[in-house]
């Protein structure tokens, strides 16, 4: 085990050290641009982000509600794998507490340590940082624990999460992984650590969904090479709908996510129903989802009557979805074989 490995593991804050057998699903979240609205594309924005207090940080619409609902929906392990520097731990944890979010693991990047040690590539690199953390995280859940991963379109989340998934499933072998790590120019200790963790991980096709928050409004087709497991979403109402369709979240949870987006983020009936329609048109859920939601809307009418009568919501949703009945999307294609080396070039170009 290398120095980098020890350093990373030591900084994974595990708040609940419950028996590993307890977890049926693990939800791994990136933070910046996935959970938090973060601007660090310019030095000024980076500085402002670093100096913000917890109360000044703004969550992405619906993300806190979704995280709370995920946590409440079963023996679900919530893990945060953030590229933010470790020095921000206090303020980030405070922000999550303000949002009422609970977590089980919280990993941050040793950016200062990398800087002091002159490991400049590691400051920007995500593959050599996140991939071993994800693999290591598998040691703390049962082998059949399903994985749901949340990232964004700003960096390499789609690439890393998909690679992680295919490593666990045995679709990517050690030789390919080594080639990828070389192409990413990760440091030698990171490479050895990642290869060792990949070898040790229990094989299983356990990654169910990879949600990519389209913070930059990237065209969804950009993520099609990763296959149907990856779901590009424009907001977390869409993610909640897919999780509901997958049987992970109950209908009231979807409505609570929607309610938070309306009450705290200015969403309205049109934007939510258009989001619903979009996720259906792209084939990630069926029109039948509406039936399940309809019962919940009736049951939780009071929750929505704050904004408008519940029947208005259903009517608007039905109007936008009913018309789509004859234009259902084609069934998803079979799982794709992913050429990670080619995708790496593509990801770097972006």
């Amino acid at each position: 085990m290398t120095d980098e490995r020890l350093e990373s593991a030591a900084d994974v804050d595990q708040r609940v050290l419950a028996p590993a057998l307890r977890w049926t699903r693990a939800f791994r979240w990136d933070l910046d641009k996935t959970y938090l609205e973060t601007e660090f594309d310019t030095f000024g924005n980076l500085l402002r982000t670093a100096l913000q207090r917890a109360s000044q940080k703004r969550s992405v619409a619906g993300a806190p509600a979704l995280m709370r609902e995920i946590r409440a929906a079963g023996p679900h392990r919530v893990c945060i794998v953030s590229g933010s520097p470790r020095q921000m731990r206090r303020v980030l944890e405070e922000k999550l507490r303000l949002d009422g979010v609970e977590w089980d693991e919280f990993a941050l990047k040793p950016s200062l340590s990398n800087l002091i040690r002159g490991r400049f590539r590691a400051i920007r690199d995500q593959v050599g940082y996140k991939l071993p953390l994800l693999l290591d995280g598998r040691s703390r859940v049962p082998p059949d624990c399903e994985e749901y991963l949340f990232g964004d379109d700003a960096e390499a989340d789609a690439f890393i999460y998909s690679l992680f998934s295919d490593l666990l499933a045995g679709r990517v072998g050690a030789a390919t992984l080594e080639q990828i790590l070389d192409a990413c120019e990760v440091y030698r200790d990171q490479k050895e650590q990642t290869l060792a963790l990949a070898r040790a991980a229990t094989r299983g096709d356990v990654v169910r969904r990879i949600f990519i928050h389209l913070e930059r409004r990237s065209p969804p087709v950009r993520f099609s090479p990763y296959g149907r497991r990856m779901v590009p979403v424009y907001n977390y109402f869409q993610a909640a709908l897919v999780l509901f369709a997958d049987g992970v979240l109950p209908a009231p949870s979807v409505l609570k996510v929607a309610a938070e987006m309306v009450s705290s983020y200015g969403y309205g009936l049109h934007s939510l129903s258009n989001s619903f329609q979009d996720i259906l048109r792209r084939g990630y859920a069926e029109v039948g989802v509406l039936t399940g939601l309809a019962d919940a809307v009736e049951q939780y009418a009071s929750l929505f009557d704050v904004f408008r009568p519940a029947k208005d919501i259903l009517e608007a949703f039905t109007r936008r979805l009913g018309a789509l009945a004859d234009s259902r999307p084609a069934p998803p294609p079979p799982p794709a074989t992913i050429d990670y080396l080619a995708l790496l070039d593509d990801t770097r170009r972006r």
Partner: peptide, 14 residues
């Protein structure tokens, strides 16, 4: 799906 867009403001009617 090939274009940057905001689906929250787009409703498709067959």
């Amino acid at each position: 799906s090939r274009l940057p867009h905001n689906p929250e403001r787009i409703d498709v009617r067959p």
